[in-house]
Design a protein around this nucleic acid. Structure first.
Length: 166
DNA sequence: GTCACCTTAGAAG
DNA sequence: CTTCTAAGGTGAC
């Protein structure tokens, strides 16, 4: 059974992000599609529960803050229940990385109690449903920036905004 | 079952 | 210094 997600868009200087909410919180966030300026948001004007509209406000503000290179004051509740036990631990570890700081895949692996599961951490980052708010981009390889599934370009840009040298 | 992936420490050349 | 290998979790085939 698949539960209904409420999809709303967020306009930023970098384009239109798409946020999807479950009844538990923000479940997904996706980068703008290049070139598509049209309102692809299937925002159900009348079916959005009040708490979700509220979270969306917070998400918008948090996202815009991060893109502008500053630390968000508030985060919406995140619904990470789509992930596996391991992935959820990784994502929670990522959320602890402070703005402007970075960790290596090895560090995260150690934090989640699987020091040797470095590559698995990479996998979990790639599976991260909420980029930017769950800062998968703050995880670098031990010898450089490493990779980035949805465009290494974004990773570099986000890090640059935070004043991080990659 | 096999392979590829946002990795890395260590051994060999 | 460069190259190769092995090892972990997960999803696609």
């Amino acid at each position: 059974m698949k539960q209904q997600l409420f999809q709303l868009s967020i306009s930023t200087p970098d384009g239109q992000f798409i946020a999807r909410y479950s009844t538990k919180g923000l479940a997904e966030l996706s980068f703008p599609k290049v070139g598509s300026a049209r309102g692809a948001d299937r925002t159900p004007r009348r079916g959005v529960p009040t708490p979700i509209r509220d979270w969306h406000r917070t998400t918008e503000s948090a996202l815009q803050n991060i893109l502008a290179g500053s630390e968000p004051e508030n985060f919406p509740p995140l619904d990470l229940s789509a992930g596996t036990k391991f992935q959820i631990r990784v994502w929670n570890a990522l959320r602890k990385i402070q703005h402007g700081k970075t960790e290596s895949y090895g560090e995260i692996a150690r934090v989640v109690g699987k020091p040797k599961a470095v590559r698995a951490v990479g996998g979990a980052c790639g599976a991260n449903p909420i980029p930017v708010l769950v800062p998968c981009h703050r995880v670098l390889a031990a010898n450089g920036i490493g990779g980035f599934g949805g465009g290494l370009d974004w990773k570099r840009r986000l890090l640059a905004r935070e004043g991080v040298e990659a």
